[in-house]
Computed example of a mutant assay.
Amino acid sequence: MNRPSRPVRVLAPVLAAGSLLTAAACANDDGASDTVSVSPAAERSPSPSATPALTRAGAKAALITTADLEGHWTQANDAASWRTTLLVDKVDVAAFLKAKTSAAECQRLLDSLYSDSLLGRASGGSALTGFTDPHSRLLYQVGDYGRDSLTKTLDWLGSLPKKCDQFTATGSDGSERTVQVVAAGLPAVVDAREGVTVTVRGTAGGQPTTLTLDVAALRVGASGAAVTNGGPVGARHKTTETAVREGARRLTDVLAGRTPTANPSLLD
């Protein structure tokens, strides 16, 4: 028998080892073989988990400003305290919203109105701001809350028109509030967003009072933003839509490493 030359004998084990490594890479835990390929589009687009975390500085940069809103809005200095002290016209909104109901999902809604708790506890950077006009208040918050947590929050918000269609709550003074929740459409920005309009009817200072608020939230990766907008004369839904649209644009820019600018349509 003719024996192979030394180069051939050395090369054969190398080829065999390469074949074994290739087979192992193509086999899953069940022993089945999969064909793994990466498309050019997948190489260009980062996965959701690759979305950078939002820092404190980034959250502040992602906040909307008066230049992003249409109308005569003024930035407030005390927005962080609105849950405990908020007067709109002659209505003590903070006291009016302090009411209790037996349904946990609906109580969560009441507790989060004009509060920084709407999106839950931030796991990364976060920031909050507010805007006033003679008859309304707009609270805007943005932060890194985690993708799964934000998805659950959006699911909860989207379920409220059915779960909390209409319910009764009792104010701190013992008077009753009738609360209605209906779905509110939002502009088609980002993949995940939800909005509702909340109407609270009762008495404040012995006078019949109706408070109408838009509540909206959106998610970009693991970061999100929320808007609460309205007052005793109603909620201007166009303003809510603008806040959502511009907020999504600014947050997307920050997460992409760009510096956001004011609403282009208002720069003329």
Score class of each variant (00 low, 15 high):
residue 5 S to C: 09
residue 8 V to L: 14
residue 9 R to V: 06
residue 10 V to H: 11
residue 11 L to R: 11
residue 12 A to Y: 13
residue 17 A to S: 14
residue 17 A to Q: 11
residue 23 A to C: 08
residue 26 C to Y: 14
residue 27 A to Y: 12
residue 27 A to M: 15
residue 29 D to N: 14
residue 43 E to A: 14
residue 44 R to D: 12
residue 45 S to N: 14
residue 50 A to Q: 15
residue 51 T to C: 10
residue 51 T to W: 14
residue 52 P to H: 07
residue 57 A to V: 06
residue 62 A to W: 07
residue 63 L to S: 03
residue 64 I to Y: 09
residue 71 G to S: 08
residue 72 H to M: 06
residue 77 N to C: 04
residue 78 D to H: 12
residue 78 D to T: 11
residue 78 D to V: 05
residue 84 T to S: 14
residue 92 D to H: 08
residue 94 A to C: 07
residue 95 A to P: 05
residue 102 S to C: 02
residue 103 A to P: 00
residue 107 Q to I: 02
residue 109 L to Y: 01
residue 110 L to Y: 03
residue 112 S to K: 00
residue 118 L to W: 09
residue 120 G to V: 03
residue 126 S to E: 14
residue 129 T to V: 09
residue 130 G to A: 07
residue 133 D to G: 09
residue 134 P to S: 08
residue 135 H to P: 01
residue 137 R to D: 12
residue 141 Q to A: 14
residue 145 Y to P: 00
residue 146 G to E: 03
residue 147 R to I: 00
residue 152 K to A: 15
residue 156 W to Y: 10
residue 158 G to W: 12
residue 159 S to G: 03
residue 160 L to Q: 00
residue 160 L to V: 00
residue 161 P to K: 04
residue 162 K to Q: 11
residue 165 D to E: 15
residue 170 T to R: 09
residue 171 G to S: 07
residue 173 D to N: 12
residue 174 G to Y: 12
residue 175 S to W: 07
residue 176 E to S: 10
residue 182 V to Q: 15
residue 187 P to F: 05
residue 188 A to P: 09
residue 189 V to P: 03
residue 192 A to M: 12
residue 200 V to S: 08
residue 204 A to S: 14
residue 206 G to S: 08
residue 211 L to H: 10
residue 212 T to L: 07
residue 216 A to H: 09
residue 219 R to E: 03
residue 221 G to T: 02
residue 225 A to M: 13
residue 227 V to D: 01
residue 232 P to E: 06
residue 233 V to D: 15
residue 238 K to H: 11
residue 244 V to Y: 04
residue 247 G to S: 02
residue 251 L to F: 05
residue 252 T to Y: 04
residue 253 D to Q: 10
residue 258 R to Y: 13
residue 264 P to L: 07
residue 264 P to H: 10
residue 267 L to N: 04
